[in-house]
Design a protein around this nucleic acid. Structure first.
Length: 255
DNA sequence: GTTGAGCGTT
């Protein structure tokens, strides 16, 4: 993977994750590591990739050991041109396990409310004017949507596979599940039978569709047996020999 | 050969 030869997350006990966006598709973790390691102790650099193609998704996660170094890297590497692309470095908002992240650090969720939980105002953790350069375009690429949907679909598929099939609600089959062709065909046939029973009740021996004239040039057994007729005279009753022959009929008429 | 908003893995 994009790790340092280690499988899975190395250690996220006290690491600060930075989200690096707008990176090139060919930028690897090895390319970002020396760049980010210059501003602090980089614990791990991870670049999510597609499980099918294996291509980078265009963003990476850089985990620092200290918050101050991470902040410095954000302030320094944010907007820096890397591999011909201006990257956007910011603190990760969500952890790998969908856990809330505060300042790049995974917030420890306490099972029990500590005393009285005072409601804190959702003040922006970022400095003023920071999000001004994070705004993106409205339109998105359709190809990305397809990838995202595939990812989610794959994730759902994996979840379904692990989960019990009996737990699936009937609504799932009603919405996504597709009836077999037999049921659908039967349903449609019944509908047609109810609407117009005379339309589709045609005798099999009867041929409502007359056989179209078969190609004459392709049926040698039609009547050409024994008598060979030159295609330049007998055939083509309409008289299109001009096309069959040379574009100069008056010239070849001599022969 | 392409794409370009976003939040992560054995």
């Amino acid at each position: 993977m994009s790790h340092f030869g280690r499988s899975g997350p190395p250690d996220i006990r006290d690491t600060y994750s930075l989200l690096v966006l707008n990176i090139s598709f060919r930028t690897t973790a090895d390319d970002l590591f020396p760049l980010f390691d210059r501003y602090g102790k980089v614990v791990d650099v991870f670049i999510p990739r597609d499980r099918r193609t294996g291509d980078s998704r265009g963003f990476a996660f850089v985990r620092y050991k200290y918050a101050d170094e991470a902040q410095k890297a954000v302030d320094k590497l944010d907007g820096r041109n890397v591999d011909g692309r201006n990257i956007m470095v910011q603190f990760a908002k969500y952890g790998p396990n969908a856990e809330p992240v505060h300042k790049g650090r995974i917030v420890e969720v306490l099972p029990r409310t500590r005393g009285r939980s005072r409601s804190r105002s959702p003040r922006p953790r970022y400095r003023d004017g920071y999000r001004d350069k994070v705004y993106r375009r409205r339109s998105r690429s359709r190809s990305r949507e397809r990838h995202e949907r595939d990812r989610y679909r794959e994730r759902e598929r994996d979840y379904r596979r692990r989960s019990r099939s009996r737990s699936l609600s009937p609504d799932y089959y009603r919405g996504h599940g597709r009836r077999s062709d037999g049921d659908r065909r039967r349903s449609r046939s019944r509908s047609f039978d109810s609407v117009s029973p005379d339309r589709h009740s045609y005798s099999p021996r009867r041929s409502p569709t007359p056989h179209r004239t078969p190609p004459r040039d392709k049926s040698p057994d039609k009547g050409n047996h024994g008598e060979r007729s030159p295609p330049s005279r007998s055939v083509s009753p309409r008289g299109r020999r001009a096309d069959s022959r040379s574009p100069s009929p008056h010239s070849s008429d001599q022969d």
